[in-house]
Amino acid sequence: MAKRKPAHSRTASKSAPVKRQAVVPVLNTPAAVPSNQSATSSEHGNPLSSDRSDNQSAEHPDDDSAAAEAPQVTPNNAGTSTNAEGNKKKAKTETEPVDSTADTPFQQFFLEVGRAREKEFNSATLPTRYGTVSETELDAMLDGPKDSRWTDADEAELMSKWNASQLRKDIEGKKYNSVTYLRRFWKRFLQFMRAPPTDILADFYIQIDQFGKKDAIDRSYSPLWSGNLCNTFEPLLACDLWQGNVSTLAMVLQYAIIVRTDDRRQWPLENHAGEFFIDYLVLEV
């Protein structure tokens, strides 16, 4: 019986046929990885950063691997893939990120399997939850409720009021176009909540008190939210606690206002989060 070679020499010799490499794409030893290449953040604690990389790849499926992972090709690896230059797919497979913490090829293999499963899961769920909002989807979000009682005359009256309003001039004017933070905030809100930010105001009895000073128009009801408000609000949108549900976010906003103002009025609370704690709270409030 032939003596079994150590892991280093097995991978270093690389006389294995191409077929085997396709099954186990990366079999790099720690020694073969340059010291400045640390493991990707997905293996080290922060699951959100792994979301980031997968989210990026989901959004830009064409530019994910080649540019970012090309520096991780080791000379060892490059030398053994005989037909890698002719086959782009195989080259992509061989340039998968290498985990320097994997001590053995077996550990490396299981890490690869785990990573592939995670990628498969994210590619199935992330685009549908937080994908870019399409134009038709946006139209559906911004469309008013369809009601048979709403006549053409009502629509015409509303439009004439809207056309004459100062708010329209502000929104369509130069001022609005120069406000990049507002545009970014709206995009993020639509993407994460699948609803316009104004839904918080309209449906959940919330009014924005953002300036506390008089302006040319009544900014409280205006969609021209202040930079301070938008910039503070924006990071909150990505929190998974809301589950992409504007009702849940509105509930927490209401609670923060209630606690700040010591509001003892009856709180019209509904459980949109499907959380047992809210269920009990609804019974008590």
């Binding site: 959940f204 909150l236 923060a256 009025r265």
Partner: peptide
Amino acid sequence: KKKILDGELKDKPYLLQPQDISTIAAAL
């Protein structure tokens, strides 16, 4: 705080201020 009791400010909406959002962020 100044208490807002039931019956006071009836039908008044909840007034959201930027500090409420900062509080939620800090609480998270």
